[in-house]
């Protein structure tokens, strides 16, 4: 574990907590894409399949349970909780996210490190996570203004993988044989997709306005 990866995990945890805070306390999911949340639930479900078979550390298992539990509960809240569901912007959240799942699965079947069931699904989760934010970014452009909590959620979610990139650079230089092109390229694509969001998000800080 290095400072970049810890910062990345904490940023990811913070993003999930900010979203849970928004949904649980003010019972609102305005501006949040249910489709992105559904994709993230699939990402964690396919990435953490080894949670029961391989133990890395208490921290690792604990965080996996947190991400699994939070992503599925957010989807449940947005789908079935009456008050929260009412604030869900169904008409605007129309990105065909299932069209993202199949290409990622095909790509994982073609490009992976080992051709095993767990490894292919784990690789699939990497590819899917890279594009999972697209429905949210499309919704963002349609709903113009968003509230601060949603903006902070997206900022933290985009930042965590950026910190992971620093972690991979650090590990590449400090650990022999630490080379994982698939993880690195997927992580880079994922972070680059946030580029224009980061641009407007920082403008907001400079301009002191809401995220336009």
């Amino acid at each position: 574990m290095n400072i970049f990866r810890l910062a990345g995990d904490m940023t990811h945890l913070a993003s999930v907590l900010v979203l849970l805070l928004k949904i649980h306390t003010i019972k609102s999911c305005a501006g949040v894409s249910l489709r992105t949340q559904e994709l993230y639930a699939i990402v964690f479900a396919t990435r953490y399949l080894d949670i029961f078979t391989s133990f890395v550390s208490v921290y690792n298992t604990f965080m996996k349970l947190v991400f699994l539990g939070s992503s599925f509960s957010i989807v449940w809240y947005m789908r079935y909780h009456k008050a929260v569901h009412r604030t869900y912007d169904r008409e605007q959240d129309t990105f065909r996210h299932w069209f993202l799942v199949l290409p990622c699965l095909v790509l994982a079947l073609l490009i992976h490190e080992k051709f095993t069931f767990l490894e292919v699904l784990w690789t699939f989760s990497l590819y899917l996570e890279a594009v999972a934010i697209l429905p949210q970014l499309v919704l963002l452009q349609r709903t113009r203004n968003i509230d601060n909590l949603t903006g902070q959620y997206i900022f933290l979610l985009g930042g965590y993988r950026g910190l992971y990139i620093l972690n991979w650079i650090y590990r590449y230089f400090t650990e022999p044989h630490f080379v994982h092109w698939i993880t690195w390229i997927a992580g880079l694509v994922q972070t680059l997709l946030y580029a224009d969001f980061f641009y407007y998000y920082f403008l907001r800080f400079i301009g002191g306005r809401g995220v336009e």
Binding site: D9, E113, K114, E119, W122, N167, T183
Partner: peptide, 10 residues
Amino acid sequence: SENDVTKDEL
């Protein structure tokens, strides 16, 4: 194995 190294990340 070297691959297990990756799996120590979230």
